[in-house]
Each structure stands twice: as structure tokens, then as C-alpha cells.
Simulated assay, not measured.
Amino acid sequence: MLGNLELTAEGDLGRLVGWRGARVHVHLLSNHGRAMNDFAGTLQGIDNIEVADGRTKLYEAWIEQGFANDRLSLLVGLSDLNADFYQNDAAGLLIAPAFGIGSEFAATGPNGPSIFPSTALTARLNIAVTPSAYLRAAVVDARAGVLGDDDGVDLTMQEGALLIAEGGSTRGGGKLALGLWQYTRRQDDLYAVDLTGAPIRRIARGAYVLLDQRLSGSDARGLSMFVRAGVSDSATTPFRGGFQAGLLANGIIRGRPDGQLSIGVAHALLSSGMKAQLRDAGDRPGAGETGLELTYQDRVAPFLSVQPDVQYIRRAHGSGTARGTLVFGLRIIAAFARR
């Protein structure tokens, strides 16, 4: 069993202290539970709230200042990168981690980029080019860490920074976007070493493209789709690329307006270094790992939702021929809000 407790607060600093055009956001996070993926044995994971070390922490704390009637905004602080980059609304119901951010990006950096479960110091600029087109870019500390983690917040940037930019259009109720990312400091090669046995250092970089589009109906009762693909340098990460695609249906059962049904497929291509590591461990790696997920969420009380979930993962490694894993789950969500 996994547990995820979150407490968020957001305030308009103009109303609170007279700081016009600014808002503040604080997000506390507490996770606990067993390592469920140890039983499934997948490389990408099966649950987006699973953590290696359960604890309570300050997850986000940032201030955002708007300029020029909010056509321009600057955010500074501890921020979740996936809230602004590599994000598809239509994939939000799915539980497998690969639908949150592509595995080829999520597995980069000294200890992962600024995403769940630890963020990093960030400066993010957002420009509304037109009412339906945007450009945004961020400089992010390469080492994620927050209050509550063993090493706390990194204020030195001794391991460099992650540079990321995304541009896109939201015309027609959807989103089409292209993103690029790169680390400023070289990262260890996953497998290759020099004559002294030390890992060869390489620049980690990548790109992604995504499409999120409503196919029919409205937000309350309609069908949306998403598709996206990403690539990495393939030397410093276990994955050289991958893609995710799926559908989200809202209000498909008459009389159940809060019901949501989603299906998605996620495929990750293994890098040569990762396959070499698996072979050294006695496994027989394939070209990639594929996951298929079907989930349904519905509100059973004003504050309570339930979400049964089923996943089938064709694992990319194994010592025998049986590499498939079938996972059944149930997520219970209690949410309370006060303005």
C-alpha cells in the first residue's frame, strides 16, 4: 500500500500585502508505503506516488510575478518542472509514471530533474506571445533537493544547471508543443569508462514533442487524446527515447458526470548502456519496455473519489521468457478545499 498526503496553499500577494501582480504558492508533501515496483520488476515504474524513501517535506515554495497584464511572468523558487514542461492534461488520470513525464527525461541528472518527489531551485520565464501561443524557459538547479531531504536544498549549483525551453500553441482547445533540454555540466556515461576505469563524462540533452487535443464534446462530457515522443542523448540515461499515447473520456456514463475513463500506452527504448548493464547482471534485455494501462475514476462523495486501475507491462528484461507483469490497483482520493 502506498500513501500520498498533500497540503497546498496559494495566495494573491496583491490582496494580502499590496504586492501587485504577484502570487505565492507553498506545497507540503508526505509519502509512505512499500516499494510496489519491487514486486512488478519494471524499469519505468507502475505508480506515480511511489518513492524510494518515504518522508514529509516541503515540495514547492515559489513566488510568481506577472508583468504587462500577465503576458509575461517570472517564477522563482522550488517548483515542479512537470507543471510547466512536458505536460499533457489528457494524460493526467493515468497512474503509471511514464505518463507524467517521459522516462528518457525523468531518469536524468544527478538524482533526477525537478519533479516528484523532490524539486529544485528554479527560475522560469513564461511569455504569452499571442492568446493561443506561448514560449517558456527555465534554469533549474541540476541537483534536486528540498527541506526534508537528507541534504536539504542545494544553494550552490555545484553540479550545474538544467536548461529547458518549450514553445507551443493552445489553439482549438488543445496543445501542440516542442521542448528542448540540456544540462550544463557533463554527466557520467551509464556504461562506458576511460583507461582509469572512471565513467566517461558526456553532455546530457534531449527533445520532445507533444499533442493534446479534444476530439469531441466538452470538458464535462467529451473525448480527448494525447500523443507525445521524446529522445535523449542515450549515453547518460537508461532510456534513449520513447512515446506515450492515450485517450481520456469524461462523463461517459449517464448520471455519473464526474466519471472519467482513460487508456494509455507507454513505450520506452533502452539505451545501449542500460542493455549492457542488464546483460552483465545476467538478464536478457529487449529493445524496450511497453506498458498498457486502463483506469476509471469516479466521485462517490463530495470529497471522495475511487479509481480502479489495471496495467500490463511487457518488461524489457528478464532471465527467462516470461516477461509480462499484470498489475491491479485501487486508488482512493480524499480532497478538501477552502477559499
Rank of each mutant, 00 (worst) to 15 (best):
D283G: 05
R284Q: 08
P285R: 05
P285I: 06
P285T: 02
G286T: 08
G286A: 08
A287P: 03
A287T: 12
G288K: 06
G288E: 05
G288C: 08
E289Q: 11
E289H: 06
E289K: 03
E289S: 04
E289V: 03
T290L: 03
T290R: 01
T290W: 00
T290V: 01
T290P: 01
T290Q: 01
T290S: 05
G291Y: 05
G291I: 11
G291N: 12
L292D: 02
L292G: 02
L292S: 03
E293P: 00
E293D: 01
E293Q: 02
L294I: 12
T295N: 06
T295S: 12
T295H: 05
T295V: 15
T295L: 10
Y296P: 09
Y296H: 14
Y296F: 15
Y296L: 13
Y296G: 07
Y296M: 11
Y296W: 15
Y296Q: 10
Q297H: 03
Q297D: 02
D298R: 13
D298H: 13
D298C: 08
D298F: 15
D298A: 13
R299L: 11
R299K: 14
R299H: 09
R299I: 08
R299G: 07
V300N: 01
V300E: 00
A301G: 02
P302A: 09
P302W: 14
F303H: 13
L304H: 04
L304R: 04
L304S: 02
V306W: 15
V306M: 15
V306G: 10
V306D: 11
V306P: 11
V306K: 12
P308W: 15
D309Q: 04
V310M: 14
Q311Y: 07
Q311W: 05
Y312D: 00
I313Q: 03
I313R: 03
I313P: 01
I313V: 15
R314I: 10
R315D: 03
R315T: 06
A316N: 05
A316K: 06
A316W: 10
